[in-house]
Design a protein around this nucleic acid. Structure first.
Lengths: 274, 274
DNA sequence: GTTCCGCATGAATCGATAG
DNA sequence: ACTATCGATTCATGCGGAA
């Protein structure tokens, strides 16, 4: 079966209206944060953020299948020494729209932005808010279980002092502990804390999204031939991963540069799949 | 100087009124979550949680010094398949009271509660909400610095020609000073994600607080002879740690059993310090 | 081929300076 | 006063070139 990719150029508030009701299995997106990406999205002021996003989430609620899931990557910025509350307000308002706030995953950014300030430490995490239409939704937990592959076995043999020390250090992502778990089991279910680094080596654009992030949620919430939507696709990480994993995908972006870039990146993949 | 410990038996909504204005440097507490610890606080319904907590936070605002900090450990529970929103609402309402919501730390529980559900994974994190009275508050960041990664060590060893040449080329730009700082530095500042295991040894107390948690915040936000308050002291972990670290402490709890337990545990420590 | 080392680069935040 | 811009601070990661 052919894997399809639909790209839309334009403001997603308009473009989303072109999509059919109940047609998407997974929405995963990282909208522009408040006051960020001014050059492309105009920089939404924190006070106006909820008002700006609610019409979008209303459309997303319409196009999502009853069994589908919406994963929203977002983090509030600091304004005048305080964390803004627009994410809190957004969750409350989206529930009034009919969304169920099922869960909040934490993305622990192992390589967070450096810096030093008198009143706060570096910000090393972002929210991954899971919303659903119904209490019953598709979730394929076995797909994201941590496998005990050959990689792990060779890794375990070389479990030196370094790993155990690293576990206790600041970086300590629980890696050592996970490894010791693997010794006793074939597979383990993950938790709602994800440990991933950002990809900052990509020079063309600001792809804050490591591929493992959409990959993990696509595995967890969809099967082959399902449909994935990213209304703020940016450089198209979500779509490229979805395509590779044989899921149909729909991408929307307001900037022609991103639209063309993703178009060029995805065509070869489609040919390869045919 | 003698380190003092004050214990109050009773509902903290009443007992807090006995404390003087602007007398506490750090409040750190883990209140009963909604519908938890029913035997002690009667199990506050999620819908009533904000209403129940606001009078308490009002008193806490009064007793906290202007340079002090309030750290609130809390996590919303799942109700009917959804995360409750009472924590979100509480943050918004506390800001209306006059609190500044400075930061949200994540406590990543490396060994979280086991279990399996069809629609969610194990919950491996809790919120540590930092509130302040003023934008300027006491923060002793050097006290909680952690060992650096391997990266720094290899870098520092080979600090030779290149860096020194560049150092000389940039006259008076402060760059040379930075380099010399790096030479002496083997530690880095932490982030706002804490990796700690829960303590499962203490089965008497329902809220399992690892000692490292209050210890970290006491180091960060207080100095010796400062005063720490826990209005829901439970088994008294916060007070015991504070006492050991030579901070005065005030504890309140509604259950006579906890009150007596902490009293017995702290007396020997006081004698030891004298 | 490996390993090692140098370097650029982040969805950051604060404080000072300028309009 | 209030906003816009700029410099300073800082560290994990992956890449490319060198040993």
């Amino acid at each position: 079966m052919e894997i399809l990719t639909d790209l839309y150029l334009g403001d997603c508030r308009e473009q989303l209206k072109l999509l059919a009701d109940n047609s998407v299995d997974l929405i995963i997106t990282s909208p522009p944060y408040a006051d960020q990406r001014k050059n492309t999205y105009g920089g939404i002021h924190p006070d106006k953020y909820v008002e700006w996003f609610l019409p979008i989430s209303e459309q997303l609620l319409r196009v999502l299948k009853p069994t589908g899931t919406f994963v929203l990557n977002i983090k509030e910025k600091v304004v005048d020494g305080e964390r803004s509350t627009y994410v809190m307000e957004l969750i409350i308002e989206m529930r009034k729209q009919g969304w169920l706030w099922t869960e909040e995953f934490i993305w622990h950014k192992k390589n967070c932005y450096p810096g030093k300030w008198p009143n706060r430490f570096r910000d090393a995490w972002e929210r991954l808010l899971q919303f659903n239409k119904n209490r019953k939704f598709n979730m394929y937990q076995e797909e994201v279980m941590v496998p005990m592959g050959d990689w792990a076995k060779s890794r375990l043999k070389n479990l030196s002092t370094t790993d155990k020390v690293r576990d206790n250090s600041k970086v300590g992502s629980g890696f050592g502990k996970n490894i010791s778990n693997w010794l006793e089991r074939d597979k383990a279910y993950p938790t709602n804390v994800l440990h991933l680094a950002t990809e900052c080596s990509n020079k063309n654009h600001s792809a804050a999204f490591p591929e493992e992030l959409p990959e993990w949620f696509i595995k967890l919430f969809t099967r082959e031939n399902d449909t994935v939507l990213d209304p703020f696709m940016g450089s198209g990480t979500t779509l490229i991963v979805a395509n590779r994993m044989r899921r149909h995908s729909i991408g929307i972006d307001i900037t022609p540069e991103y639209y063309e870039m993703v178009k060029q990146k995805l065509n070869p993949v489609e040919l390869y799949l045919l």
